[in-house]
Design a protein around this nucleic acid. Structure first.
Lengths: 168, 168
DNA sequence: TAGAATTTTCAAAAATTACTGAAAAATAAT
DNA sequence: ATTATTTTTCAGTAATTTTTGAAAATTCTA
């Protein structure tokens, strides 16, 4: 397989995978392209390589920056903005975990706290089942939260080697 | 907050969350409804409670069964089929992890293996960056695979308490 | 085996989400 | 301050995904 074909394949698959993870196809493709690009790219480079419009590139790049996965790079003497992606996959993963925890787990747990205050007789089967579910999620969420914090704060080698030694 | 309102809120939020996780809104809502329902429900119950069509219920229920999150229940003497969801959230989580590993991680790793065989001079910057990315993902994926296996096979209390004791 | 109840399928419609491209805003150069 | 370059916005359009509902298939009953 030739390098150009392999690159295409990677971008396309990473994009398809994105849709399974609540990220839109194009955003994942831009990310893939930047990950395998040795040097920073401009909006025009990305437009050309992925065959998408300027507006589309602009919006997805902004989202990627919000996610902390892409950085603006200033090249001295150049007028245009350049963009580059974090290439260490462990850092990419922890960054995604950190963001999703903030955007999804935290608000979900806040809601569970509210819902667990529902009024009603706990001997009522409907109320009991509801509260059991909510409280189960609360407990699980609290554990997950703690573990993800540890995971995100630790460095790759320490975490993975320790974890595997112990759990395997 | 009254129980009926709380239930609605839970179903609606769980549904919205689903869309962030590559699951469609309705499928997540059906799952939410079944989790907080004390007794098994029929397709008609679900249609009525979520205000959706028969075909929609049918397809989403089937998907949930494929995911291993919902089971058909036979009630003696009843003609209709009943459905129920696993209520232990740890089991729900491990089931989802197991399925996603199979559907997403495994094929992705297979692709990385192929792509790492790309032909080209490793001193070429383009080739080197590509291979570094691919190999990084391979290494990361292998670790993740091992850890998820342990996680899925262990029981909740053992895993969470051991993990927290060690890593906190 | 015929008829009734229930489930499944799937083409068409609706709803949602993503993309384009041109105009406006911002930034830099002269 | 004017012009040139680049970035950003966003209304309209396109593409994709989800939902409906009625017909077909299946399953059960007698």
């Amino acid at each position: 397989m030739k390098i150009s074909e392999a690159r295409q394949q990677f971008i396309s698959t990473w994009g398809a995978m994105g849709t399974h993870w609540g990220i839109n196809r194009t955003m994942a493709q831009v990310h893939a392209l930047l990950m395998i690009s040795a040097d920073p790219l401009t909006q025009d480079d990305i437009m050309a390589q992925l065959n998408i419009s300027r507006g589309n590139v602009n919006m997805n790049i902004r989202d990627l920056i919000d996610w902390g996965l892409v950085d603006r790079v200033l090249i001295p003497g150049e007028r245009k903005e350049y963009f580059t992606a974090e290439k260490d996959i462990w850092k990419v993963a922890t960054q995604i975990i950190k963001e999703r925890k903030k955007r999804e787990l935290d608000p979900m747990m806040k809601l569970m706290d509210q819902l667990s205050k529902v009024e009603g007789d706990k001997r009522d089967k409907e109320v009991k089942t509801f509260l059991d579910t909510i409280n189960g999620i609360k407990k699980f969420g609290a554990h997950a939260d703690d573990m993800l914090d540890v995971l995100v704060k630790s460095d790759e080698n320490w975490f993975l080697s320790t974890a595997l030694k112990i759990f395997k």
